[in-house]
Amino acid sequence: MKYQIEVNQLTKAFANKPALNGVSFQIKRGEIFGFLGPSGSGKTTMVKILTAQLLHTSGSVKVFGNDVRNLQNPEQMKRIGILTDNSGLYDRLTIYDNLELFCKLYNVDVKRIEEVLEEVNLLQDKKTAVKQLSKGMKQRVTLARAILHKPELLFLDEPTSALDPTNKQQIHTVLRKLNEAGTTIFLSTHDMQEAEDLCNQVAFLHNGTIVELDTPQSLRVKHGDSTINIRLKNGTSVTVGLDEAGSNAIRDYMNNGELLTIHSNEPTLGDIFIKLTGRALQ
């Protein structure tokens, strides 16, 4: 089995209105796949289809090499972890009690709770009721719950949406560690920086269709305008091409000691998204 997820010509319509239209992609084991799109583009719908919460209208969806409907069996369900778009935590219960329930449902030793709380940096707060936590802490509890049973494949629906940079960083650190340990991650996000930082592959979703799919590296090269930006010590900035004239100019500035900084003009994923869709990611 080469791919953890294979989606082919997927269509999903709600009351004849298409939410996803002709979507195809594959995700290899060990990859972090970014599903990037603005609000309403179909990210949550995709996550729900991939986790067998919603049935697609047409096309084929395979998870672990089998039709996605096979996920409805508890043994298969144990292989995936899900962080949905709303926390789904029991507010009145403590962090520990929330996780204890899921330890028992997944048949995981309760010792794992301390381990996973350590990972998301919440061990000191384990006796705190969820309703007293900040949004960022709640999201880290949700992540802890999603990885409690060490799933092979993790689905994250906008995991850091509306979080402060510190909480965002903490979550990214956990995700990188999980990925290094072999977890495949499907990450839906409208945060292009997040996709750039974490993903091996990104798909740009616009109105239910994938308009671009590649590694962040290749996307930047492909959509870059092949120029270099130079700042001189006298405060002016100059743009030169990647050709002989450009190289001569740079050499001259360096020889004359005028050069201050030099940057290639690679677009960010956000720039590319706007270029392709005429629409910003927010």
Binding site: Q53, F102, Y106
Partner: peptide, 10 residues
């Protein structure tokens, strides 16, 4: 949405 999470568990 806790029911959803329960349904997504085994």
């Amino acid at each position: 949405s806790t029911l959803r999470v329960l349904l997504l568990s085994p």
